[in-house]
Amino acid sequence: MAIVGYARVSTTGQSLEDQLNALNDCDIVFQEKKSGAQSEREELNCMLEYVREGDTVKITKLCRLATNTKHLLEVVELLDVKKVSLQVLNLGIDTASTTGRLMVTLIGAIATFERQTLLERQAEGIALAKSKGRKPTTRAKQAQVRELLVCGMSKAQVAQKLNISLSSVYRIISKCHL
Rank of each mutant, 00 (worst) to 15 (best):
D25Y: 00
D25E: 05
C26E: 02
C26F: 00
I28C: 00
V29K: 08
F30Q: 04
E32M: 06
E32L: 07
K33Y: 12
K33I: 07
S35I: 12
A37W: 00
A37R: 04
Q38G: 02
E40C: 00
E40W: 11
E40F: 13
R41S: 02
E42K: 15
E42I: 09
N45K: 15
M47I: 03
L48R: 09
L48S: 02
E49P: 00
Y50L: 00
R52C: 01
E53Y: 05
G54N: 05
T56A: 04
T56L: 06
V57W: 08
V57C: 06
T60S: 12
K61E: 13
K61I: 00
L62H: 11
C63Y: 00
R64E: 06
R64F: 06
R64W: 02
L65D: 05
A66F: 00
T67G: 09
N68T: 14
T69Y: 02
T69N: 12
H71C: 08
H71D: 15
H71F: 00
H71K: 11
L72S: 12
L73D: 10
V75R: 04
V76W: 09
E77F: 08
L78G: 01
L79N: 04
L79T: 04
L79D: 06
D80I: 01
D80S: 08
D80K: 07
V81W: 12
V84L: 04
S85Y: 05
S85C: 05
L86M: 09
L86Y: 08
Q87N: 08
L89C: 03
N90L: 05
N90E: 14
N90W: 15
L91G: 03
G92S: 09
G92D: 11
D94V: 03
T95S: 13
T95K: 07
A96S: 13
S97L: 08
T98P: 13
T98D: 11
T99K: 04
T99N: 10
R101F: 14
R101W: 13
M103G: 01
M103E: 10
M103C: 01
V104L: 06
T105N: 14
I107D: 06
I107E: 10
I107Q: 11
G108C: 05
A109V: 05
I110L: 11
T112R: 01
E114L: 04
T117A: 04
L119W: 09
L119T: 09
E120I: 07
E120W: 04
R121S: 13
Q122R: 05
A123W: 02
E124L: 06
I126V: 15
A127T: 11
A127R: 07
K130E: 15
K130W: 12
K130H: 14
S131K: 14
K132C: 10
K132E: 15
G133L: 14
T138H: 11
R139D: 10
A140H: 10
A140T: 07
Q142L: 06
Q144C: 08
E147W: 00
E147R: 08
L148H: 08
G152E: 04
S154M: 07
S154I: 08
A156T: 15
V158W: 10
A159I: 14
Q160M: 12
L162W: 15
L162I: 11
I164L: 12
S165I: 09
S167T: 13
S167E: 09
V169W: 14
V169L: 09
V169N: 09
Y170V: 02
R171D: 02
